[in-house]
Nucleic acid binder design. Structure first.
Lengths: 349, 349
DNA sequence: TTGAAAGCGCTAACAG
DNA sequence: CTGTTAGCGCTTTCAA
């Protein structure tokens, strides 16, 4: 019985049943051939008949049916804040390099750095029954993740997200560059270069990257007995506009600071633009340092001094952790892997 | 009967049947409440009982089952060559802006500019029964797309892909910047600045963007009676490395040309690097022009002269065309929309 | 206003 | 080596 009304122009796609009919075998055999099951053996003659029928009909398996039945989707989801920040495409590419090799599909959710976006990404992921998740959470409450983990869906979190209250036996792993240590290394560098009044363009309020990097900034100042001026720390969105706005506001402060540390490169580039508009020379009047080492960092003028992260490697690592969980090769407690970062001295500071 | 073996750690997720049991209604009613069907009316008391049960169990609908039954996935796919080229994240963002507003999910497939990647993206999309596709094809044979279109799955193609042989009544639309006109505008500009020997870094062989832009380059030279030197046209991949390699090869040619037109900005930036290494001044010794106007273009030094495309707008437009098809608001013949481009003169040429 | 029942296309246990 | 059969979770028709 054909109970539902189909959209008018959509022709019916061939199913395994159609293939079976044409090849004069049962539907089961079609499934066997398709999935290359080795617990049963199919005569090569039958296999050929099936394959011919598949080709003739242009049959393509239906993933919805397949995953409904098998409970697996062969898909993992990556939830990231901003695809237009060059950091994330590299991360995605790293993830994809390993998921693809394992036959997994990757779907990407862009949250725009909002709580709603994160919820939507995670919800949709859950509804879509993805087999695993890679998350860059900014705002989501950890409790939101718990049901997914207890369902047994493995997850890798990239970033210094606070979920210490979680039991250790969940299928959860973590990878991140320690933001405080990395920030300390670059602020230390600025201090060594003689700067004592160093502003910070901190990024969006109450987000893990901001918090780690601000902590490092504070630590570096404290270690050198430089008094902290809260007014020199400026929030903004993590993009070029945010950096531009923050810099404009900072430039109204007198007497003027001599260096700025921006919590990411995009914001540092925005600060460049603000300086250019004001006729402020970088690094002579104000030194500017960034964070991430996006490809543009070495191409701008002056080339940007920054802390390198390795997003492609990060993505690969996160995906590998996930694949180990998915394949059952690892089934232990939460792993926490700290990733490499490097101070990259160029011209801007 | 529970015939299959579940992955050990995965707890069973609540289903509509569980909700129904708890709320003491039939499963049907749960579905009604969930989908807010208005052809039937549910008493507000029943509705409340159902909603409470949903909350209590943390029920989340299963998309695989839903789309298996309904034939709709509420998902569209975008197939793009290279997520790390800043052009594409902007395109994606534009697409997402409109799909999200219509309640559609977006999944992105990265092809790495390969035929296999395109096939994989399209196949997976088809298997996954996405409701629509936005494609940036480089290599795929048009015949590969035909069964999808005749199945009634609408598609928007971004780029000057040759499928003139297609019947006009397929659910297919096209949006693109005419590569030849855009390339002509910038090569014309170079010629007006006095350049007569202009090299071209053309990008990957036999791809639509390359072909359109090379055509424009040839047209501009011809219009000014400048003889074409094939040796000055150099292929490469559409990224920074490709531009770098191509430029190094071009620089071995004597006597040297005075300007280069790169078929995208990433390649132009690679050419910058090659020049820097050789101590060649831009634009004094060699002028360099790009294509795309990626964000980095105005930040590099010298700032890059280029042709602006508007990927965010392009994505939005493509997605709107698709949504019109999907909603039935449009059901006519193929639409072809040409998009705006602008010559952006900066410092590099 | 509610419920029963069919069945989307597929996998996998089991029987032959 | 091949077939029969149940049922994944859901939407939708039809009946009450």
């Amino acid at each position: 019985m054909q109970t539902e009304r189909r959209p008018p122009s959509r022709g019916r796609r061939p199913t395994q049943a159609d293939v079976a009919r044409l090849a004069e075998v049962s539907q089961t055999v079609v499934s066997y051939v398709l999935n290359d099951i080795r617990t049963v053996s199919i005569s090569s003659e039958t296999r050929k008949r099936v394959q011919d029928a598949i080709a003739e009909l242009g049959y393509v398996p239906d993933n919805a049916a397949r995953s409904l039945r098998s409970g697996r989707t062969m898909t993992i989801a990556a939830v990231i804040p901003d695809i237009t920040n060059p950091f994330y495409p590299d991360l995605i590419r790293g993830i994809q390099n390993v998921t693809q090799a394992s036959g997994y599909d990757l779907v990407t959710y862009n949250t725009d750095g909002t709580l709603e976006g994160e919820q939507r990404g995670i919800d949709t992921a859950r509804r879509g029954r993805v087999d695993g998740l890679i998350l860059n959470p900014f705002h989501i409450d950890p409790s939101y993740l718990l049901p997914i983990l207890t369902d047994g869906i493995p997850m890798v979190i990239n970033g210094e997200y606070h979920l210490n209250a979680f039991p250790p036996d969940l299928p959860l792993d973590r990878v991140y560059v320690p933001g405080d240590a990395a920030a300390r290394s670059i602020v230390d560098y600025l201090i060594e270069k003689g700067h004592t009044r160093i502003a910070m363009i901190a990024g969006e309020d109450a987000t893990p990257p901001r918090e780690g990097r601000v902590r490092g900034y504070r630590q570096a100042l404290a270690a050198h007995h430089i008094p902290l001026e809260e007014a020199l720390i400026r929030g903004s969105t993590f993009n070029e506009e945010g950096g531009y706005e923050a810099m404009r506001e900072l430039l109204t402060i007198t007497p003027r600071f001599t260096a700025v540390f921006a919590a990411n490169d995009l914001m540092a580039l925005g600060a460049f633009i603000a300086c250019r508009e004001e006729g402020i020379r970088v690094p002579d009047d104000i030194a500017i340092a960034g964070f991430d080492n996006i490809p543009a960092a070495r191409l701008v003028s002056p080339a940007l001094t920054t802390v390198a992260q390795y997003p492609e490697r990060t993505g690969r690592h996160a995906a590998e952790q996930l694949m180990e969980r998915l394949s059952g090769r690892y089934d232990g407690p939460t792993r926490v892997d700290l990733l490499q970062h490097d101070l990259i001295v160029r011209e801007s500071a």
